[in-house]
């Protein structure tokens, strides 16, 4: 079983949530679940491009009251 890692990047516009995700990915291992919280709408397209490039899986992207939650399963590290 992997770990669940929450990355709170709400409010980050510069350099942005993708930086926090890249940082967490570096320290993750196969089987981990990364849960990225963001408010910057650009995160949706960015995480999809990121997951495609890094061959990881996006389980869900949901939004509630401006908080975007992306759940990522690490399949490749």
């Amino acid at each position: 079983m992997g770990d669940k890692i929450v990355i709170d990047a709400r409010g980050s516009s510069c350099p942005g949530p993708i930086v926090e995700l890249a940082k967490a990915y570096r320290n993750s291992k196969v089987g981990d679940t990364l849960e990225l919280w963001a408010t910057d709408a650009g995160v949706r397209a960015d995480v999809q491009a990121w997951a495609q490039k890094t061959k990881n899986q996006i389980d869900s992207i949901t939004e509630q009251e401006g908080k975007i939650v992306v759940v990522i399963k690490i399949l490749n590290r």
Partner: peptide
């Protein structure tokens, strides 16, 4: 760069 684009924040 580790980011999806040259500068991570899209407007710049």
């Amino acid at each position: 760069t580790p980011y999806p684009r040259a500068y991570p924040a899209e407007p710049i």
